Structure formats: C-alpha cells, structure tokens
Simulated scan of single mutants.
Amino acid sequence: MTIDYHALSDNIKQWGKELGFQQVGICDVDLREHEEELQRWLNAGYHGQMDWMARHGMMRARPDELVPGTIRVISVRMNYLPPEAGFAQSLSQPNSAYISRYSLGRDYHKLVRNRLKQLGQRIEQAVGSFGYRPFVDSAPILERPLAEKAGLGWTGKHSLIINQDAGSWFFLGELLVDLPLPVDRPVEKQCGKCVACITSCPTGAIIEDGVIDARRCISYLTIEFDGVIPEEFREAIGNRIYGCDDCQLVCPFNRFASVTDEPDYYCRDSLYQQPLATLYQWDEDTFLKHTEGSAIRRIGHQQWLRNLTIAMGNAPYSSDIVNALNARQGDSSLLDIHIEWALDKQHRQRQNLVTEALPTKTQRLIRIIEKGLPRDA
C-alpha cells in the first residue's frame, strides 16, 4: 500500500483535535543542539535531587535511542486551565491554600497518554501496523524542545512553552513513530525584552533566559524535594502548598489562554481555596481519599503536611494555628523541624501585633531597646 504522508499528516492533526488536543505538530528526532545545554545544566547541579534527570545521560536528547526505529515525534498540547481559577484571590488569602492550577483536577498523565494511544490506533487503522509509543512526562525525553521544534510554540524565559494564541496553560505529550511524516516549522520566539517571569519569581529560580535552578524553584521544593526546605525559601513560599504558577501568571501571552474543555481538569471542591487549617487536619486516609486520581497524591502525606506547616507559619497569627502546629509535634523529625520554624514565625507575628497596639512612643522605645541603642539615640 502506498501511503500519502502529507495527507496522513493532515489527518493526524484532525484526529488529534477530535481526541481533545488543541494542537498537534510533527518534528524529526534531531536534538543535538540541546545536548551541550542539557549537560551544562546537569553539571551545575540545577536538577537538585531529581537524579532521574541525569540517570539516562544524553538519551533525553535522543528519542531514537529511547525507542529504536523512531524517526518522527508527534507532539501535542492540551489545555488545562480550569474555569474560575481564582489565582489572585487564592494568593491574597494567606489562610487559604494555593495549589498549582494544573493539579486541582485529575492527574493528566493517564488521560493524555490514553488519548495519545487512541491517536496511534487511529493511525494504525489507516496505514496498518507501524511502530509507535506514547509518552507523557514519563520517560527521559526533552518534551519542550520537541514541542518547540514541532511548532507548538517557543520556549519562554521561564523555560515553559508559550503559544501566541494560547499562552502556556497546557500539558504536552508525545507519540514516537517510525513513519516518515512531513515535519512542521518552529515558530519565532516572541518574548522580546519582557522579563516579567524572571522578576516575579518569588525565589529567584530563573537565573537566566530559559534556565531554571530547580533547587530554588517553589514547584521543585514543594513537589520533587522531600527533605528539609531551606529557611531562606520558606517565607517566599507563602501559602503555596503544591507548586507555583507565578511565572505564568504574569506572562502577557496568558491573557489569551482559553479554559479547558476537559471536566477532569476542573477544580475539586476538596482542594480549591481550602483553609490551611482544614487541610492540616487531614490524616493519611483522608489525604489519600481526597487526592485519589490526583497528581498531588504522589508527594505523600508527610510532605503534604510539611508544605502546609510552612504555609501556616506564613499565615497571620492565630491561636488556632499555633494549637494545630503544636498538636502535630512528634509526628516525624522532618515535620518537627518545620513546625519549630512555623511556631517561631507565629510567635514573632504575635509580638508585632502586641507592639502595634501600644502607644507610638512605647513602640519607638521598644524598637530602640531591640536595636541595643542608647535611650537618647
């Protein structure tokens, strides 16, 4: 059977949209230009504890080594921005938990992967047996460079893919195939002189255009990192208990982003804008129940409590928060370290409230004494 690959390519993009992908692009597997950059990033230790980033060496830039026979990658994107996302409202309410918008609904991995598998099956119905394998953030592969090469958008200064018409609120997925499909053209970068994402990062994790030091990134610290969060980042974390969206929130192109059509990505009531104290009371069984089918479950109950402990320390002083923190002491050594910090932060906030309630002259006297200056200074 003779295959018209140009017609097949058009059909693949149409089938992809019918399966719920907002865009489908195709590229070859040559990512050699990214190998040196990847190695520098790894050598600098910017991957932190994500050992899996270095474990497979340069295979991440060589899809044909990951799946021998691969000559093309079908790259897809799927919008995930939920209706009524409430970004500013959540961040401005320090007693409520902020959870990254991609994780407020169902875990995207299975959903996107199943749609990619269906896309592969549709292609198979058209051309007969061929080699294909879907991936969704589940293998050593440079998905963003592939998406950029396939024309889905360009790599922004925050390292995420930006689409001119859709912003960056979307998931990526790949279908590796052994078909000689025509490839798409990359699009021109359009960030220009804008540095909004860099200047808005709470912890200064974007160290240069497109380069992230994960060890400083709130998403890494609250999700990938399971140890003691360095004190220098705790206050900046604020009420963000799972991930961070700040660099996307300020991106001008996200003004054009559309909300998702996938009900699975809609916000769960049990996670959306919930009081910190409510989530802190969850035992492990409750945590597992409310995070079933969610990406959040992967961090486990102890890490969940660790993140909440920091957020509660950053919240305005409350005797209820202090009591809740005290009640968790002794649960684990990891938690105790963060509880001690959070209690100290709450204590200092209480002292400030007491001081602010005093007459102005008394406040000035207290500040002089705290500075160790002579009374007549």
Rank of each mutant, 00 (worst) to 15 (best):
S168P: 13
S168K: 01
W169G: 02
F170M: 02
F171E: 08
F171A: 03
F171H: 10
G173K: 12
L175Q: 01
P180M: 05
P180I: 05
L181I: 08
L181Y: 02
L181P: 09
P182H: 07
P182Q: 05
V183A: 08
V183L: 06
D184H: 10
R185Y: 10
P186L: 08
P186Q: 12
E188M: 10
K189F: 03
C191E: 08
K193G: 08
K193H: 10
K193T: 15
C194W: 03
C194S: 09
A196Y: 00
A196Q: 01
T199E: 13
C201G: 04
C201V: 02
G204I: 10
G204P: 03
G204Y: 07
G204H: 11
A205M: 08
E208Q: 15
E208S: 15
G210T: 06
G210L: 03
D213T: 10
C217K: 10
I218K: 08
I218Y: 09
L221M: 11
T222R: 13
T222I: 12
T222M: 13
I223L: 07
E224S: 15
E224Y: 15
F225P: 00
G227Q: 06
I229M: 04
E231D: 07
E231Q: 09
E231R: 08
F233E: 01
F233N: 01
E235F: 03
A236Q: 14
A236G: 01
I237G: 00
G238C: 05
G238A: 09
I241L: 04
Y242S: 10
Y242V: 09
Y242L: 05
Y242N: 08
G243D: 14
G243V: 14
C244L: 12
D245P: 01
C247Y: 06
C247N: 09
Q248N: 12
L249T: 15
L249W: 14
C251L: 04
C251K: 04
P252S: 08
N254I: 05
N254P: 01
N254C: 05
N254W: 06
R255V: 03
R255M: 08
R255L: 11
A257Q: 03
S258D: 14
S258V: 08
V259L: 05
D261H: 08
P263E: 13
P263A: 14
D264R: 11
Y265W: 14
Y266M: 07
Y266N: 11
Y266F: 15
R268S: 13
R268G: 06
D269I: 11
S270H: 12
Y272R: 14
Y272A: 13
Y272I: 10
Q274M: 10
Q274Y: 05
Q274H: 04
P275L: 03
P275F: 06
T278W: 06
T278N: 07
L279R: 04
L279T: 07
Q281C: 12
D283P: 01
E284P: 00
D285M: 09
T286V: 05
K289R: 15
K289M: 11
H290F: 12
T291D: 06
E292W: 02
E292D: 05
G293D: 10
G293V: 02
G293N: 14
G293I: 02
S294R: 05
S294F: 03
A295V: 00
A295I: 01
I296N: 01
R297V: 09
I299C: 01
I299A: 01
G300R: 06
Q302P: 04
L305I: 11
L305G: 05
R306A: 02
L308M: 02
L308G: 02
L308E: 03
T309D: 09
T309Y: 07
